[in-house]
Amino acid sequence: MQKPSFLKVYDLKKIHEQIKIRSGETKLGEKFQFLDPEGDFEEQLENSDSKYVLFGIEEDIGVIGNHGVAGARNAWKAALPSILNLQYNDYIKGKKVLLLGHMDFDELYHQLSGLEGEERTEKAREITNFVDKQIVIVVNRIVSAGKIPIVIGGGHNNAYGNIKGASLALGKPVNALNFDAHTDFRKRESRHSGNGFSYAWYEGFLQRYFIFGLHENYTPKKVFKKLLKENNIAFNTFEEISVRQEKGLEYQISEGIDFVKSNSFGLEIDLDAISDMPSSAMTPSGFDLNVARNLVFKASRSKNIAWLHICEGLPGEEGSTDFIKVGKAIALLVADFLRK
């Protein structure tokens, strides 16, 4: 089978110059596995002894369709050098990671050229629906090969592709634990970054859904009512954890994981939920990065973890402080997912 459309498959030559080789040290990128870009895609995936498949998504069209701030398409570029240059040691090993490459949707952006207002929004939503199908194919192939996808970058619209792709591969609905300031459970008015979970839910691909750290100030009353009506949807809020301190953080993390871990589940990390993290909806009041790291580490211990997705990072210009900050934050979260 040929590689899926829009997927650029890497080999060591592609990324070698981004690895900072130092005498006496081994970097994670030196230990990654790769596919032969010219070989049979599906056969190589199945024959690899890797446990994880790492790839990026260079896309923020779903964010544009949700009236958000664009820029998440650059998060993979920011994250990759930081991931490659993590130390390979007894705490984190890279031999079981296959670095697949990234999904490049640059050619779709010309369809938005010259459009403004609602016309631009509607076109972005139409394109997002097309992007969904491409993400589903890649995630489905990875999960079908018995691997765990680590998906970096793009808008949170791509949660839909992760959920559907994994569900189809496993032949059953899956669960999701979403570390997020927002539900992304908005009405199904056409696809964008704010309704990936609601589409997956109503189409039967998502069985149980937990939102960790929902912001009370930015969630409409009708959304809370909708969530509370569903037995298979649960949440906690940032305010009850960090402002009112009604329940301990450790308890809340365990509660979230326990809600989804009886079935195959994915972990969705929206960088919007982290305080002062450059993202498409940056907040001055959110969780410390270490809370996200702790959640990622603990969720990764579950035998039913099916994927990790880190999204909505807004790194800005290459070499800028924000670029470095977003890249390092994503690399730390990936390291915690792989940590022994």
Rank of each mutant, 00 (worst) to 15 (best):
E126K: 15
F105Y: 15
G155L: 07
T26P: 06
K8I: 14
F287S: 08
I15K: 08
I324V: 12
L338M: 01
I310L: 01
I61C: 08
E116C: 01
N158M: 05
H16M: 08
A306N: 14
E250V: 10
G213K: 10
M277T: 00
T283S: 15
A75W: 05
C311R: 01
G171R: 01
S23N: 10
L267V: 13
V138A: 09
V143C: 15
E58W: 01
T237D: 02
E119P: 02
K187C: 00
K229F: 12
L267E: 08
V260F: 06
A299L: 03
S264T: 06
A145D: 07
Y52C: 10
V69D: 02
F259V: 11
F259D: 12
N66L: 14
G117F: 06
V139M: 10
E43N: 00
P315Y: 04
K247Y: 07
V334L: 06
K226A: 12
P173E: 06
E17G: 07
F130S: 10
S82C: 02
T321H: 03
K31F: 08
L108T: 02
E189F: 02
E230W: 03
Y251P: 00
P149D: 03
I61R: 04
L35H: 09
E189D: 13
E25W: 11
L271S: 05
D49Q: 14
N74R: 09
L35W: 05
S264R: 04
Q2A: 08
S279D: 08
M277R: 02
S190A: 11
K3I: 05
I15N: 12
D49Y: 12
D180L: 09
A176S: 14
I211K: 08
V139H: 09
L7K: 05
T321P: 06
L295T: 02
D104V: 07
E107A: 10
F323I: 03
A331E: 05
G313M: 00
E255N: 14
M1R: 12
L99P: 13
I150C: 00
Q18G: 01
A281S: 15
K95T: 06
E43R: 04
